[in-house]
Design a protein around this nucleic acid. Structure first.
Lengths: 223, 223
DNA sequence: GTAAGTTTTTATACATGTAAGAAAACTAGC
DNA sequence: GCTAGTTTTCTTACATGTATAAAAACTTAC
């Protein structure tokens, strides 16, 4: 039976490591040697503990990475000053800010799929997006859907582009997809065959904002 | 020096297993026990070989999954008959078909990030999208960008939704994000606080097509 | 036949995430 | 002091992907 109204402080073995220390150390490893070098063993060693001790502060490695993303977003995201007054611009500015931070931080890809609301530090930006959409005439429910549509687009852009960038660098030999793309039959797939030589440069371009503007125009179509 | 104009057949040790057999067996495992149970060891055992033998037919497990996705797409994607004549409908139909197949196949999430052009079997659908966009007045380059925007949105939707579905099922205990979401300060984030109770049901809705239509409207804004 | 070359398969080994349970280090009640 | 309870840490063990290098099973040139 737990002591009901006791002035208890803490019970049990005192913690030797803290979540804060874990995240700080992990950040150091990632920023120094890249996310690939972040292993639970190394992290434990650098902290002076054991791998399994980490698991009392973190559910699994994915949660650790999520916390790392939160940490990163918290220290990187900057609210626009002054915030735009035009509702449409509020949406654009907030979404672009989120995208910019994520794009600069390629290792998050493995985590981006983990949840739909990014970091708690990003909540303010989500608010801006939803607010901008409602002020443009959408109902609250429509605005939430609109936000999610924007988030899908943003997450997809990051994930897909980061992954194909990784591919390109990691591996010189062409995938069988490249091959197939090179051998397109113009009779079957005329547009793709025509676009094929320009495909690589085209897809290398950063068109996030262009797409975002189009999407926003569509969302606010008749308002 | 290689024999220049020799009529050689094949040299070296004859293969005991084929890529086709690998994929077929892997498909069986996945469809029967889920993608989590697909391990290189089990696959090798079921084929009657050794894990490392697989690596002569497949670069790594990710490539195996990609091939599996290709295989799945090839046998699942069905071209609309008759294809819509309206360009806008061609885009909608093709994108929706791709999305439908991917959404029904949750395990692809781990692979979706791997490349921007999905399966070779999907090329025809990509062609439809690009064609529909050009016929609506976009230049070829604009159409390719438009296709990519649609693909980002589609991939993002699949990845994010599949991941959050996985979360919900795998784990009853709420994440700290849920917690934060429950404690939103209405003074700071009024819209989110207002939407909070409805957030879960709202995000559970399938709004892919709605978002797609908005996006398409935006892409074809002034055409 | 034999030797050389080529391709596929096998054996062995390692790094990693993490499950399971024992041990340690504390507090509260006696 | 001691005992019970609680929380954190540590030990051990396992499944997995895959690197490395050796062996096997062929073909071709002589």
């Amino acid at each position: 039976m737990p002591p009901p109204p006791a002035p208890r402080k803490t019970t049990g073995r005192p913690a030797r490591i803290s979540l804060e220390e874990i995240i700080r150390t992990a950040r150091g490893i990632v920023s120094q040697d890249g996310v690939d070098r972040l292993t639970m063993r190394r992290l434990a060693t650098e902290i002076g503990s054991t791998p399994m001790a980490l698991y009392h502060h973190v559910r699994d490695k994915e949660e650790l990475l999520l916390l790392l993303l939160d940490d990163y977003a918290a220290r990187t995201l900057r609210r626009p000053d002054p915030p735009p007054t035009d509702p449409r611009d509020r949406v654009l500015t907030a979404a672009t800010a989120i995208h910019e931070v994520l794009a600069a931080c390629p290792w998050i890809v493995e985590v981006l799929t983990a949840d739909d609301l990014m970091s708690t530090s990003a909540l303010w930006f989500v608010e801006q997006i939803v607010a901008g959409l409602t002020e443009s005439g959408l109902s609250l429910d429509e605005a939430v859907h609109g936000y999610r549509t924007i988030w899908y687009y943003t997450a997809g852009e990051i994930v897909v582009r980061a992954a194909s960038a990784r591919r390109r660098s990691a591996d010189a030999r062409p995938t069988y997809r490249d091959q197939i793309f090179a051998d397109l039959d113009p009779a079957d797939l005329p547009r793709l065959a025509e676009a094929a030589p320009r495909w690589a440069p085209l897809t290398a371009q950063d068109t996030y904002e262009r797409g975002l503007r189009a999407l926003l125009n569509g969302l606010l179509h008749d308002r």
